[in-house]
């Protein structure tokens, strides 16, 4: 289900990337393509390999096989240069820095990132109501998340890797964060990879989607193409009607009496034609919201 992205320049690419932890496969023959300037949502269930993939991009985890390119650099060879160009919000809390007050933590990052913008950091801190005198270890999950976001954004990197960025945030804070993120994107035009299993939370900023299942990238496409190709079709037919026998790209099929509903990856006109040719009447064709699309792709056993 890869979209044709010929001619597109990519901020991140992986080729046949593989990583195992003991007997468990974390990443399996993964070919990721994140176009420059895109907001790429990496969706998948817990343990699907999303966080591992982001860590590989930062060279925090070494892949067992395959190639990686981030902003034209190989993280395995130029790890420091790659990390300097990335704003990263990790999934978990900070380790080793719990004793630091928030203000000191931000100053610490300012030293490490020569492109750090102190005014922007101060503005973000104010907007996210960050109190610099509080110790990191005393912050709640949501408060720690806000601090991590400031460290990720304040050096205005060309690539953001956000691992569950809204995790722990209340609805108001989530809205605030997404608003800031949108502003940041409009200002910088940077590329964003957001890893999440709560797709609806980031739906408003997403323009590309990758779906990971058990370490495999089962779908990768632009939001526009997803909207155009993935539809639900509700049709009715005579008694005993089972629908078109040659309908390809079916991800889901449900029958209720004489009515059948399919979720199909394919060209709408062609799908409708086949249903009609088989004797059915199409009652409704609908797009799927992003989170439902992800759910369908994750549940689907046989992807086209």
């Amino acid at each position: 289900m890869d979209s044709p992205l010929d001619g597109t320049t990519f901020a991140v690419t992986t080729r046949a990337l593989a990583k195992r932890f003991g007997r468990q496969t974390a990443l399996d023959a993964l070919d990721l393509q994140v176009p420059k300037g895109a907001v790429y949502v990496l969706a998948g269930a817990n343990g699907a390999g999303k966080s591992t993939l982001l860590r590989v991009l930062l060279n925090l985890v070494r892949p067992d096989a395959g190639g990686v390119e981030v902003l034209g650099l190989d993280p395995c060879r130029s790890g420091a240069q790659v990390r300097a160009r990335i704003g990263y919000v990790p999934e978990g809390p900070e380790s080793g820095c719990g004793w630091m007050p928030v203000g000191r933590f931000l100053a610490h990052h300012a030293v490490y990132f020569p492109t750090w913008d102190p005014d922007y950091a101060a503005r973000l801190s104010r907007a996210l109501e960050i109190r610099p005198e509080r110790r990191l270890s005393h912050l709640s999950k949501g408060q720690a998340r806000r601090v991590q976001l400031v460290t990720a954004l304040a050096h205005r990197p060309p690539l953001l890797l956000l691992d569950e960025p809204t995790d722990g945030l209340d609805p108001v804070a989530r809205d605030e964060v997404l608003g800031l993120l949108s502003e940041h994107l409009a200002d910088t035009g940077c590329t964003v990879v957001v890893s999440t299993h709560l797709v609806h939370e980031v739906e408003r900023i997403a323009d590309h989607l990758g779906v990971l299942r058990a370490g495999r990238l089962v779908a990768q496409t632009s939001r526009d193409r997803l909207a155009a190709m993935l539809r639900t079709y509700r049709a009715e037919g005579p008694d005993g009607w089972v629908g078109p026998p040659d309908l390809s790209g079916v991800l889901q099929r449900r029958g209720h009496g004489r009515e059948i509903q399919w979720t199909v990856w394919g060209d709408e006109r062609e799908v409708v034609e086949r249903i009609v040719r088989s004797g059915g009447t199409v009652r409704d064709v609908a797009r799927l919201p992003l989170d439902e699309a992800v759910l369908t792709l994750l549940r689907s056993k046989d992807l086209p």
Binding site: V61, G79, A80, Q81, A84, P90, E94, S95, H109, F113
Partner: peptide, 12 residues
């Protein structure tokens, strides 16, 4: 693991 120390942009 992925401690903050290693996430910083300096050769490890």
């Amino acid at each position: 693991g992925d401690g903050r120390f290693w996430m910083l942009p300096v050769d490890r």
